[in-house]
Amino acid sequence: PEAADLRALSRHLYEAYLKYFPLTKAKARAILSGKTGDNAPFVIHDMKSLMEGEQFINCKQIPTQEHQPQTSCNILDAVELRFFHSCQSRSAEAVREVTEFAKSIPGFINLDLNDQVTLLKYGVIEVLIIMMAPLMNKDGTLIAYGQIFMTREFLKSLRKPFCQMMEPKFEFSVKFNTLELDDSDMALFLAVIILSGDRPGLLNVKPIEQLQETVLHALELQLKLNHPDSLQLFAKLLQKMTDLRQIVTDHVHLIQLLKKTEVDMCLHPLLQEIMKDLY
């Protein structure tokens, strides 16, 4: 394809990204570096601030779900579970955002509908983990649309296996952030991940690979223009896709462990659908 077409594709995907994802990297980095003035995030660093933070989240009308076990809501021991349920709610909403973004990739909605489902099923957790990176630094992560900063130490202090959930994402994100991608680079990278032709059970691989190839060309050109001094950035970025698959596999296994060990835990139906028979 001509360079002009590739640039038009990059612009289109960047616009879709801005339209569907409310917290951009630019905004997240501004919050994390304290450039938002009075709107500093609420910091959760222990159980007390978690409880205060929960109220803060509720005040801001973050969508809650009906499946939350009401019986254990007031027990300190259930704090992790309750927090986990909030995370699930936000994740389900994020899956909806990623689906809208996927539908905006030229050619995606013309693929076989079953293949669209397969691409989302296998791609969406990878996309969500990549999208966490801009929200993180070595000390913690923004949550609740950037209204809250939760410290890494606090997440590590939760009881097992909750304490094991985020640490691999921090390790990945801190390394990923050294690539210094911006939102327009991210938009293309997310589209490349979604258009992976090697997902299990795909019916018609060829059109998916053709779409991915075009987006890969657009990404390569974008990185050359946007990061002229960053050598091998394109290759480094593609290598991240291998690490990502391992993180998703480990994440799904942890969720499956949680399902077995936590009697009060129920998984959001959408997330259940995605994780069932995944890896």
Binding site: P63, A92, E93, V95, R96, T99, K103, I109, L113, N114, Q116, V117, L120, K121, P269, L270, E273, I274, K276
Partner: peptide, 20 residues
């Protein structure tokens, strides 16, 4: 199709954020 009912709905625009 039944196994991935919500994903199908999301793709076909028949699930609103409220349903989630």
């Amino acid at each position: 199709k039944e196994k991935h009912k919500i994903l199908h709905q999301l793709l076909q625009n028949s699930t609103s954020p409220v349903d989630l």
